[in-house]
Nucleic acid binder design. Structure first.
Lengths: 319, 319
DNA sequence: TTGTAAGCGTTATCAA
DNA sequence: TTGATAACGCTTACAA
């Protein structure tokens, strides 16, 4: 039997007689044969590997339960495929090594989460291999741009409106970083809603999606506006930071200050005051990202460029 | 110029004349040449890739800041090398795909974190490629077993003793899972210390290193022993879960119940009551793991099989 | 120090 | 449907 035939069996070619398939399969089983990936990649020009690019400090990445859910969704989809996942923790100034790896033809495609406007190296990557973003990319222009996201503006509007509906009138916000679309959009939703209500959106402090930065922001906010009665925070994790400061300063939540957060991650339930929050389907988003990439890799031509998933208000105790 | 010479330059062979090196380097730069990894692996029988095997639910893995620190240390060391990291999230029953990947010669070595006694597939992996464990492996027998750990027993003894020194006499413990060495050892340290003091170690509940499981354990404990005055919890994350229940039930920490935790992760500082905890150098441990593996891959023969790092008591507010 | 040439383990093309 | 045989892009003896 020629090795060409064996190769056909291994790759499930339809044009092999059933008997031969049986014999080869048995032999493979018996010999415990596993094809060498390097040889395979070399010959087929495919690697069966995709990367998860995280242009972020790893502590921050791991620290936010939102990412845990996204990665969970990604691995879940990938588990159904033959692709494996490479973790590339690349700061905004990716190491020489990372870029080399990206261009050494070692990846069929890549997923990007938590990217900032400053991450311009991603444009180069996009030119090399299919890329799918988690969250609208900072520069949503290219014809090769694919992403999964939620309507952050609408979500923030819903959250802010909920505060208004509760009768709160002195609203503030702790935003995400203004160099990330998710940070900007949620802030925009807050502003839009306040503008519609004829209110001033000036009780605002920026943070960077960490609990620590949010705590600092909360302190600054309280100093300027000790009479706040409502707060929209751009993520659950940040809300936990804000909550800690509020308790420390004797504010009661939701009595004194009502809080609406964003994500509906485990942090929302685990918070000292269970958080009313805008839910986004994080795991499903990860799943959808991987699915989109896989379709691209399969050569499908009708893959939609964006997949905007729904958000909804989850009411708990904080507002 | 022959391609052999180019290969030598690329691989930094010492036996190439400086002028040629210069010329080739310049050409590489100009042409933006990056060697093809697959071809390289095929010829050299090396992949320059190592895996991080996580035999754990991904949510749990991401949820614990301890792992964030370990991974941070790992990537930090790997960044100095030419190796890249593959993330293999393999439950205790690894998928066929995962095992295939492991045996397809695609990895030069692997790092393992958070493993349980039930993860017997790791023995097979260890027979194939160098393996370094984060935490003493469940079956520390093989001549190929390498790991980085802290002395969990001693750490737990220090923590428990601190509670005793505070004058607390009705001590309880929320342990880690008893199918993980870290869970077992910290529990042992607690028992040993109590035995030395002539105290009964029966106010104990097992949990699984998550905040949620610890909250449940705390409830069970309080039901049985409402008069507890000291608590040793096997991780910071679990302590936050316990803290929530204690507050909910009106206990004051540390007044009513003093708590000593373990890890000294960001969760310790961020807790509603900053935690007195046993610090372990998590990031350094990750760094040491990667370093150990790299030395093994470099063919060093005198690599010590175990690297036990120090713990120390960090006093904050909870005890 | 440099070049020649033989692999490395597959897939893919082309005949048969 | 099957089998030769040529790539795939690099490393590495071995020669020169």
């Amino acid at each position: 039997m020629s090795r060409a035939t064996v190769s056909r069996v291994v790759n499930g070619s339809p044009k092999v007689s059933p008997e031969i398939v049986a014999v080869v399969t048995a032999a493979i089983e018996r010999l415990n044969y596993v094809p060498n990936r390097a040889a395979r990649s070399l010959a087929s020009r495919q690697t069966q590997a995709v990367a998860l690019i995280v242009p972020e400090d790893i502590t921050r990445f791991f620290g936010d339960p939102y990412f845990a859910a996204v990665v969970q969704g990604i691995t879940q989809r990938l588990d159904e495929s033959e692709y494996i996942l490479n973790l590339l923790v690349a700061s905004s100034d990716p190491t020489h090594k990372t870029m080399r790896y990206l261009r050494s033809g070692n990846l069929d495609g890549a997923l990007v989460v938590s990217h900032h406007t400053r991450d311009k190296f991603l444009a180069d990557v996009e030119a090399m291999i299919p890329l799918v973003f988690g969250g609208r990319p900072a520069n949503d222009t290219g014809p090769n741009t694919y992403y999964v996201d939620v309507d952050n503006i609408a979500g923030a509007e819903t959250g802010t409106q909920h505060l208004l509906d509760l009768g709160r009138t002195r609203l503030g916000s702790i935003t995400g970083p203004i160099d990330m679309p998710a940070g900007i959009d949620r802030f925009t939703g807050f502003q839009l809603t306040l503008a519609r209500a004829g209110l001033e959106a000036d009780a605002v402090e920026h943070a960077d999606f960490t609990a620590l930065s949010a705590a600092a922001a909360m302190r600054r906010l309280l100093e300027r506006r000790p009479d706040l009665d409502g707060l929209f925070v751009a993520s659950d994790l940040m809300a936990t930071g804000a909550l800690a400061v509020l308790r420390e300063q004797g504010y009661l939540v939701p009595d004194d200050i009502a809080i609406v957060a964003f994500d509906d991650s485990p942090a929302a339930i685990g918070a000292s005051v269970p958080l009313t929050t805008i839910s986004q389907p994080s795991a499903e988003m990860g799943f959808a990202m991987a699915d989109m990439l896989l379709r691209l890799l399969a050569g499908e031509t009708d893959v939609p460029h964006r997949n905007i998933m729904p958000t909804r208000l989850i009411q708990r105790d904080s507002a």
